[in-house]
């Protein structure tokens, strides 16, 4: 599903140039559950943003489902993204002014799903995430674990083929964290490809494969058994 080759990303400020990704190559197949690990500042989030088409690389190739997209413009990327990719962030990133229901509904609005269908699908995922009873609450009225479940609900409501999660358990205690990992595992078992950044060896064990980064380069790949 994903194949990147010699991907490079630099950050230039006035004084220094940081190489966030240094000729990175990797491949992720459909249905895989991959964890990315590495020390702080090694380029994990940068990689995930590029994979999620939120950012573009400075050099190298990125083939998504057989299409080279490194040169895609914003409009094309947004179109590809909203139909194929769901995001889960460490800091949940829910919109404070919208209710649980409305937050989850948002991606459907942008993919042009009709209003009746939206209600059906949002209710379906809220049910699955067991937060149906909170549908009319605002994010501030929920616990961290509940907020992250809403965020996951929002990530999957469009039935994406790929979910990108950047430290999804980083702001949660271990019990809530395990719940989230179970949810991701379930999704993966139903066929969704998952790429997750994490600092936790425990969480990484839920995946099929761990890719370890150092200074923007792959240093090791572990296959889980």
């Amino acid at each position: 599903m994903i194949k990147i080759t010699n991907l490079e990303k630099f950050y230039r400020t006035e004084e220094v140039e940081t190489i966030a990704l240094n000729k990175l190559s990797m491949e992720v197949n459909t249905g895989e559950f991959v964890a990315i690990m590495g020390p702080s500042g090694c380029g994990k989030s940068t990689l995930l943003n590029i994979l999620g088409m939120l950012d573009d690389p400075d050099a190298g190739s990125y083939v998504f489902n057989g299409v080279e997209i490194a040169h895609f413009n914003e409009r094309k990327r947004a179109d590809l993204r909203k139909h194929n990719i769901g995001f889960v962030f460490q800091s949940f990133n829910l919109i404070d002014e919208l209710t649980v229901f409305e937050n989850v509904e948002l991606p459907l609005i942008y993919t042009g799903v009709s209003s009746a269908d939206r209600v059906k699908r949002v209710e379906e995922v809220l049910d699955k995430m067991q937060i149906m009873h909170r549908r009319n609450h605002y994010p501030q009225q929920l616990s961290g674990g509940q907020q992250q479940r809403v965020a996951i609900a929002r990530a999957v409501v469009n039935k994406p083929k790929l979910i990108l999660a950047d430290e999804p358990t980083g702001n949660l205690d271990s019990s809530n964290g395990n719940d989230v990992m179970e949810l991701l595992t379930d999704l993966n078992e139903q066929g969704t490809t998952i790429i997750m950044v994490t600092h936790s060896e425990h969480d990484a064990r839920y995946s099929h494969r761990i890719i370890r980064l150092l200074d923007g380069q792959t240093v090791m790949e572990n296959i889980m058994v």
Partner: peptide, 16 residues
């Protein structure tokens, strides 16, 4: 800013 970011992540274009 956060709202804008999220909307863009889930597929909003600048125009909308």
């Amino acid at each position: 800013a956060k709202e804008v970011g999220i909307r863009k992540v889930v597929g909003a274009l600048k125009g909308s």
